[in-house]
Design a protein around this nucleic acid. Sequence first.
DNA 1: AGGGTAACCGAACGATCGGTCGGGACAAGA
DNA 2: TCTTGTCCCGACCGATCGTTCGGTTACCCT
Lengths: 195, 195
Amino acid sequence: MTMPKRDTYTPDSLLTVAVQVFNERGYDGTSMEHLSKAAGISKSSIYHHVRGKEELLRRAIARALDHLFAILDEPEAVNGRAVDRLEHVTRRTAEVLMAELPYVTLLLRVHGNTDTERWALARRREFDQQVAALLKQAAAEGDLRADVDVRLATRLLFGMINSIVEWYRPERGTLAAREEVAEAVAKMAFAGLRV
Amino acid sequence: MTMPKRDTYTPDSLLTVAVQVFNERGYDGTSMEHLSKAAGISKSSIYHHVRGKEELLRRAIARALDHLFAILDEPEAVNGRAVDRLEHVTRRTAEVLMAELPYVTLLLRVHGNTDTERWALARRREFDQQVAALLKQAAAEGDLRADVDVRLATRLLFGMINSIVEWYRPERGTLAAREEVAEAVAKMAFAGLRV
DNA sequence: AGGGTAACCGAACGATCGGTCGGGACAAGA
DNA sequence: TCTTGTCCCGACCGATCGTTCGGTTACCCT
């Protein structure tokens, strides 16, 4: 353990506060004044720790993306039948989404108004396409029901997973609770998708 | 038919433009300047047709909510077994979501920063709860699989439906295309949910 | 022809936006 | 004790925000 000494802000601890406010009010709806109130320091002090509002967004989004892409490198996502790899990615994506909730929420709500936001959208598309490829392969291997279009199924699957950010609140956010939700997601999705 | 004479703006035709820009840039990320450029009239002219930015949001959200609540009054949503009524509501919600895409999209992205937005959130919760009640009844009647929590299933179902706004684009938006997507949604959801 | 009004405009309003600036308080190292 | 650097502040910047205002068209009705 390294943490509990600080009573002053670090870029990361400030990010924790900022991301929370961003999610409550929306990024565009959040002013530096809002952030300063929430952090308990003056507006100008924020600039001692980070370059500005957009850097906070960039840091948050980068963190979310790092966690998501790491899933695709896990052994269970690389080895085995495509359908099993897909189910693993589904479950793990749901888990990461809950573990990194505020960061992923921010990522999922980006509009593309600035360079940072467009970069976020591009990286998200990358991730989606890699999962879509997995789903396509699973379909080609005959492990998915044939009467649902692959692209449509991909989108609905992600829709279901990503919607977790709309209601999941990690109040008593134990690992077990997250695994339970991820299990339900995988069950509902694949009981409908599997042959 | 009454319409096709106007080459000037009405509150409704202006709303069409505004809602599109709101969805591209986000409501908070859209300035009246943006709207005036998109509408091709000056910023001040907008105030000739509507009271202001927030009225545009209120009109858009009201339209979305009207269409959604109308579903619950349809005969197929009132009569019959709960599970069948639920499937009807699911299918119709998906259809309405596509038919009224920009308006519903706006509704689903509200944050609660103003009175108008908080009103929107409250009405949304009403709708969700009515559907949740339907799902609960279907479960009580033994028509839904028992190994998925009812509240969780409701949320995932809505998550799947609502995620349509993230990717559906009504370019060749015929009624048939919409029915096809709604059919896929219902199939995926209920092939996983039904006993 | 003339009066009324719907539709529009440029200019400007006070407020707030994200960000800058110079400096004060305080602790550590010399 | 005197620096040095971290952390923070109030005051302020130009730009942009949503909105208002006074006025100019252009068309309809008589």
